[in-house]
């Protein structure tokens, strides 16, 4: 086969080679980009891992505080309940006393006034 007759094949082969090379180059760039993304995601995940670790530690502190508060509040509520438990009411005027009685001014509270 003469060179003249083989030229189209040579050109075709050259074009095919050029195309393959250019595609290979593009693939390399794509792979590099993926590597960058993977690396960035790995960094972000590491950040999240630290954040979750800190959050877990803080929640543990909060749970301990709540537990301590509950332990402290139990005797407090028990004391409140015992001091505020129901007592029989004092004797009070009946309606007939009120209807026949003259208006009475509101009595000042005995707890008012200077403490001695």
């Amino acid at each position: 086969m003469s060179v003249r007759r083989a030229r189209p094949f040579i050109v075709a082969a050259a074009v095919a080679t050029a195309l393959a090379l250019s595609q290979g180059c593009s693939m390399d760039k794509h792979m590099e980009k993926m590597d960058d993304n993977t690396s960035r995601m790995a960094n972000e995940l590491a950040g999240y891992r630290d954040y979750v670790k800190t959050l877990t530690e803080q929640m543990k502190v909060l749970a301990d505080s709540l537990s301590m508060l509950q332990k402290m509040s139990t005797p407090m509520f028990a004391m409140v309940m015992s001091k505020l438990s129901e007592q029989p009411p004092a004797s009070t005027p009946d309606i007939d006393d009120v209807l026949k009685g003259t208006p009475k001014p509101t009595q000042p509270d005995a707890t008012e006034g200077p403490q001695k």
């Binding site: 009411p89 009946d94 309606i95």
Partner: peptide, 22 residues
């Protein structure tokens, strides 16, 4: 008619501190 109402707050045993009204 007239209606006389007396309320006991919590466990107070001193009637002076009872809300009361006609």
């Amino acid at each position: 008619g007239a209606v006389w109402v007396v309320l006991q707050p919590v466990n107070l045993t001193n009637a002076k501190n009872y809300p009361k009204f006609l």
